[in-house]
Nucleic acid binder design. Structure first.
Lengths: 341, 341
DNA sequence: ATGAAAGCGCTAACAC
DNA sequence: GTGTTAGCGCTTTCAT
């Protein structure tokens, strides 16, 4: 039976269903939540009445009464960077198997925005929080500490977690990339990245990278930073600029795959031998780029795993289970076609 | 002053703040919401107490009491298709200027999932709904009709809206692309697209496209469909397959830019003259692809405008303003470098 | 400028 | 198996 148009425009309540079905509100509530024993006869009466009226329960009232909210706050810096939609997809997949529902907040990499988004979300008393990164304002940390819900910080691993944490060590990722590059004999290394002091993960990768170079007695030979605009275009432009300025570079490390792809396309278009004359590498392992003329060397940031595990931790905790609080994932180096081996 | 760790783990209530500040709960409530007249002295006392305790208001109780919820439900088919994160970004930008907050639900292109997500979201009594597409289950339509909140259907324009609608006519987009292609003298036209019967917008573009071809006495000469996997790779593979099978094709129309880019890369790698020997076009105008060796011809789906306007409609309605209910945007043809002119 | 009382629409806990 | 009662933590309304 298809629901009728509600003429009164007054939102329907349990009471309306209760009257239509001729049973108490409590019984209606039980039927609608599949709780407790209800005879098949009443169950049928109630579901029929509810459907006929087009009743939509009021979760606000339900949540207030039961002190239970099936929402999980997910706080990410951006939607434009494909990495985060991908993490979201994995989180959704896992939560789809549970009664939990993700609610997304976006911070634009701004700590104060993060703080306000967090405040807003915590005021809905969610069953858990998944938040990108380890750097938060003092107030944000305090809120999460006091909230008494599972908090999972994701993506990064270098720092002090509030509660649970799942991610890859960004420093280590940078370090391992540097080591691989050195091992292949590259020595004159250029770096390109975002000009975002607030992207802590990019910063840590860079630090790990230079640190490992230093250990081998090597310094970054040249660098370029960008902000805004199409990453592919910026990658091209920066690569052109850096190679014109420092034609003797034999390797270019890009802080993300999109600018790396731009650099790769520039090299190919200009007859530069990759990886013979110049080697290239990015970071993230975005699937989006499979299918380029050459496969860019990169490091998989394991974001699907991260999303999945973070969601599992929240789900487990919501069921009162104890779970390990620190999950370190290992970023895997992919040589692709742009890094000799 | 930095908030203290809450030792009791009992969530703080207005009452706690009220006691700490030595004023009534009502006064605390007024201060925290900036409503009504409160003396500067009490205001200070209250804000101080609230901050010291680390009080986070309970919006659930607030919403129940005030019958007002500042959430806007946004329902989209997918996060993997960059189009939707982009729409989201624009929606967020606009809502950031208001007290409203977007809440995202993902349907994976499944009508039943859409129905359940919608039900879930409506049960939180949001201030508005933004939902992609015009095709919904009967129950979903009924829910939206009865919900008595502004509903904005976005992206598409070909069909019967429930309430407000903002988008581009997908049929027209397909038609206009076909007309442009014919006008440039192309006659042997191949089509490539997703194998998704539930992607109604792709389907309508295809219908518009073939319809316009038919009017010129032309039929699709060959076609390929794909599902899943990296769109760039699929674009390459399909292009290779279709050109091997039908080497006399002089134009390839791709139902989205990503597979179009794959096709473009294939042609370039195989010495096919674009757009001389074969012309190419996609759909969406994704910025992501600026920076390819050649700019793919495409049609901007205006998704930033769509997101912005949809959010503005919700915001206006939430303020009790009347606003126009049907906004048709015009997809703009971009010739790029892959369509003769 | 501040406070007291009533109640938003549900569910927990207990009765029958 | 079903009903009754008492709140959940706020805001609305009205009083002072």
């Amino acid at each position: 039976m298809s629901p009728q148009h509600n003429p009164s425009k007054r939102p329907l309540t349990l009471r309306d269903v209760s009257e239509a079905a001729g049973v108490s509100e409590m019984t209606v509530s039980r039927v609608l939540r599949n709780r407790g024993d209800v005879s098949d006869a009443t169950r049928l009466k109630v579901t029929k009445a509810a459907k006929m009226l087009g009743y939509v329960p009021n979760k606000i009232a339900g949540a207030l009464a039961s002190q239970r909210v099936n929402l999980v706050a997910v706080i990410i810096p951006s939607m434009s960077n494909m990495v985060f939609p991908e993490v979201m997809t994995s989180i959704s997949e896992v939560l789809d198997e549970t009664p939990l529902q993700p609610v997304i907040g976006v911070t634009n990499y701004l700590p104060e925005k993060e703080e306000s988004v967090l405040f807003e979300m915590l005021s809905w008393r969610p069953s858990g929080v998944i938040i990108a990164g380890l750097e938060h304002t003092a107030a944000a940390r305090a809120m999460m500490q006091n909230a008494d819900v599972p908090i999972v910080e994701i993506m990064d691993l270098d720092g002090d977690p509030i509660d649970a944490i799942v991610g890859v060590s960004q420093r280590r990722a940078g370090r391992e990339m540097a080591e691989a590059i050195i091992e292949q004999g590259y020595r004159k290394i250029g770096f390109m990245g975002t000009n975002m002091p607030l992207d802590h993960r990019a910063r840590k990768r860079f630090e790990g990278f230079t640190e490992a170079l230093a250990k081998a007695g090597i310094e970054i030979a040249d660098q370029e930073f960008y902000s805004g605009g199409s990453a592919l275009v910026k990658g091209r432009e920066m690569t052109e600029a850096i190679l014109k300025r420092s034609p003797d570079l034999d390797f270019l490390y890009f802080s993300n795959d999109m600018i790396g792809a731009g650099g790769l396309l520039y090299c190919l278009a200009n007859g530069i031998d990759v990886p013979g004359q110049v080697g290239l590498a990015g970071f993230n392992g975005v699937e989006l780029l499979d299918g380029l003329p050459k496969q860019l060397a990169t490091m998989d940031a394991e974001r699907h795993q991260i999303g999945r595990i973070a969601a599992q931790i929240i789900a487990a905790r919501a069921n009162g289970e104890e779970v390990e609080a620190r999950i370190e994932l290992t970023p895997k180096l992919q040589f692709g076609d742009t890094l000799k081996r």
